[in-house]
């Protein structure tokens, strides 16, 4: 059953030995899991930060909730940058015109936006010592994270789909999920015009 589904998927040319490719994809997978755990932990910090801002508004930029939040906004662009460097060794993950994978580009740009928003945010709070969620300086944090998540989803699904195609992971049984993997391998998960 597993082989049947694998054979039905688009077969991409093997440019490096299969075993080498599986090992490299799994090393990328390791970094992604570590960053996923970090991102999940920051979901807790969102509540910690919100709790602090409801009690003390904004006493200082240097509170534990901010150390945690801001350090992750620096760690994740660097981590995804490390993925981008290692990613060059896996031909299937190349983007259009042999450039960086589109999903990876979106992720790095999204998190870079959040990283620079730390500075924008501190400038704003130099004059306005409030913590209203909807003020403009907070917009780019949220938009950056959303862009980064969208790109990361496209990239991670593509890595997983290739592991399925190489027989290193179990394919999804749901035909709609299998179709999504197939689209990901063809670089068409989100749009047929953006490979």
């Amino acid at each position: 059953m597993v082989n049947e589904v694998t054979v039905a998927m688009a077969q991409m040319p093997a440019l490096i030995p299969k075993e080498v490719e599986i090992q490299r994809l799994k090393k990328i997978w390791l970094i992604v899991i570590a960053m996923g755990s970090t991102a999940a932990s920051v979901e807790v910090d969102n509540f910690v930060d919100g709790s602090l801002h409801q009690t003390s508004i904004r006493d200082s930029a240097f509170t534990p909730a901010h150390w945690w939040l801001y350090s992750h906004f620096v760690a994740l662009p660097l981590g995804w940058g490390a993925v981008a460097i290692y990613d060059r060794r896996v031909p299937i993950l190349r983007g259009p015109n042999n450039s960086m994978n589109t999903g990876l580009k979106m992720t790095i740009l999204g998190y870079l936006a959040t990283m620079f928003t730390i500075g924008v945010n501190e400038m704003w709070h130099f004059w306005f010592v409030e913590e209203i969620f909807a003020v403009p300086n907070h917009w780019m944090f949220n938009m950056g994270v959303v862009v980064a998540f969208m790109g990361a989803l496209a990239y991670v699904v593509r890595v997983y789909a290739r592991l399925v195609e190489l027989g290193a992971e179990t394919p999804g049984e749901n035909p709609y999920v299998a179709e999504m993997y197939k689209m990901a391998l063809e670089g068409k998960l989100y749009s047929r015009s953006i490979p």
Binding site: K26, L30, I33, A34, S41, V44, L52, T63
Partner: peptide
């Protein structure tokens, strides 16, 4: 005054669970 100890322990427990899931996932997939 901002982080009562039980709240800190709660965060610590939840985060330990998050990290443990990531750890198990890493080892089993590798």
């Amino acid at each position: 005054w901002a982080y009562p100890t039980p709240s800190g322990h709660y965060a610590f427990i939840v985060l330990t669970i998050v990290e443990a899931i990531g750890y198990i996932f890493c080892v089993k997939v590798m």
